[in-house]
Computed example of a mutant assay.
Amino acid sequence: MVRKFIAQRRPTAGLEIRRPRKNQRQEVDVTYTIEEALRIFIQAKEAEGLRSRTIKDYRQHISYLSEFLLENHPDVIDDVNSLTTNHVREYINYLRNDRRPYKGAEHRKEIDRSGLAVNTINIRLRTLKTMCRFWYDEVMIETNPMIGVKPVKDDERKEVEGLADENIGKVFNALDDRQFAEWRDKVLMYLMLDTGLRPEEALTVRIEQFDFRSMFVLVPSMIAKNRKGREIPITREVGRMVRDLYEETKQYFGDPEQVFMNAYGEPFTAGAFRKRLNRMKKRLNLEKLHPNMFRHTFARKYLLNGGDIFTLQKILDHADIATTRKYVQMTNEDVKAQHNKYSPARRFLRR
Rank of each mutant, 00 (worst) to 15 (best):
G162A: 04
D137N: 03
R133Y: 04
R124P: 03
K170G: 00
N144H: 05
E159T: 12
M140Q: 01
K129L: 10
R124S: 06
W183C: 00
V149A: 14
F180A: 02
P145N: 05
E166R: 13
I123R: 12
K158N: 10
K170I: 12
N167M: 10
T130V: 13
V171P: 00
K170V: 11
D177V: 14
D176W: 08
P145D: 07
V160S: 04
I168C: 11
E142F: 04
P151K: 08
K153Q: 06
A181N: 12
V160R: 01
A181K: 05
V171R: 01
L163M: 11
G169M: 12
V160H: 06
W183A: 01
M140Y: 00
F180H: 08
T130E: 06
E182C: 10
D176F: 09
G148Y: 05
A174L: 13
E161N: 14
N173C: 14
R178K: 13
D154W: 03
V149T: 07
T143H: 06
I141L: 09
A181D: 15
V139R: 04
A174G: 10
K150Y: 07
V171W: 00
T130Q: 05
D154A: 15
D176T: 01
F180W: 13
G148S: 08
M131E: 09
E166K: 11
V160K: 03
D177K: 09
N167D: 15
E156F: 12
F172S: 10
G148A: 08
D176Y: 07
G162S: 06
Q179E: 14
L163N: 02
K150R: 06
L128T: 05
E142R: 02
G148K: 03
F172W: 13
K158Y: 12
M146S: 10
M131Y: 08
R157L: 01
I141R: 01
I168W: 04
V171Q: 00
M146I: 07
K129D: 11
V149P: 00
M131W: 09
V171N: 02
M131H: 10
L163F: 07
N144V: 04
K129Y: 05
I123G: 11
D165V: 14
P145V: 09
R133A: 11
K153C: 06
L125Q: 01
A181S: 15
W183Y: 15
K150H: 07
F172A: 13
N144E: 07
N167F: 12
V149N: 03
N144Q: 05
R157F: 03
Y136K: 09
L128W: 02
A181M: 14
E161C: 13
T127Q: 02
R133I: 09
T130K: 02
M140E: 01
M131D: 07
E138M: 15
V160Q: 06
P151Q: 12
I141Q: 04
Y136W: 15
M146A: 10
Y136F: 15
I141F: 07
Q179G: 08
G148I: 09
G169R: 13
I168P: 00
M140T: 00
Y136G: 06
R157D: 06
L128P: 02
D165Y: 15
